[in-house]
């Protein structure tokens, strides 16, 4: 199993447990990089990169058009790392010179906001908590929103940039889920819900987002 980044249908397979995540250059991912890309913290870069790759793989053109697509990502540590960096900056001068830019990125939903601006996403955007099964809650929440019939395409992802000794477990993954697949000639995989559990087309239970990659 290699470390790195790639597509569901090609490229090298990502590893959620080993190695340091590669953060691709903006030019590798985006036709036009997000306006504030240079200011993004690592959590936001990871999330935005994974979403861009997933949308590209699903042949969803994210040009100028705004779309009714939603995003749900899960994270265990959310933005704890940038939180710490921001807070250290407030300890001098009574917080008078706290960084407004860093503060903005202390909200995990701001990563989703950057993605929404970049990809024209107008559907629901939500961050959810993480279990030990990567992306389990994001996947379940995305399917709930698809079932609500208010949106027909959801991106489900896992994004983490843990602090301290766990820092190597940083990474991101995203998949595009469509209620009635239309954007690609045939869906890459089918998943279905049955009595609150998820199964793939072979009847195997899907618990983590990585199950969809065969990892």
């Amino acid at each position: 199993m290699k470390d790195g980044w790639g597509y569901l249908r090609g490229g090298s397979r990502p590893s959620p447990t080993r190695g340091k995540p590669m953060i691709p250059k903006a030019s590798d991912i985006f036709d036009q990089a997000p306006q504030r890309y240079g200011r993004f913290d690592k959590y936001t870069r990871l999330g935005c990169a994974a979403l861009a790759l997933a949308l590209r793989d699903a042949a969803i053109d994210c040009g100028n058009e705004q779309r009714s697509i939603g995003i749900v990502t899960s994270s265990k540590w959310e933005t704890t790392k940038v939180d710490t960096e921001y807070y250290h900056g407030t300890l001098k001068e009574g917080g008078a010179f706290a960084s407004p830019n860093l503060f903005s990125y202390t909200l995990p939903g701001v990563m989703l906001g950057e993605c929404a601006v970049q990809f024209g996403v107008k559907g629901p955007t939500v961050c959810v908590g993480e279990t030990e099964k990567w992306g389990e809650c994001a996947l379940a929440t995305a399917l709930r929103l698809l079932d609500s019939m208010t949106v027909s395409v959801m991106v489900a992802g896992w994004v983490d940039d843990p602090p301290g000794e766990s820092a190597d477990a940083a990474g991101a993954v995203a998949v595009v889920l469509e209620r009635v697949p239309q954007t690609v000639p045939g869906p890459v995989k089918w998943i279905r819900r049955h009595e609150g559990r998820l199964y793939d087309e072979n009847g195997r239970e899907v618990v983590s987002l990585f199950d969809l990659f065969g990892l």
């Binding site: 959310e78 939903g109 939500v126 961050c127 959810v128 809650c137 709930r144 079932d147 609500s148």
Partner: peptide, 26 residues
């Protein structure tokens, strides 16, 4: 259960998701 963070709309979104979970019979 789950945990939700949608900035200042967090608990509104949480109520919406709760409603969806109940409405779907989960």
């Amino acid at each position: 259960g789950i945990e939700v963070n949608a900035a200042c709309a967090s608990s509104t979104v949480a109520i919406a998701l709760a409603m969806q979970m109940i409405a779907q019979g989960e």
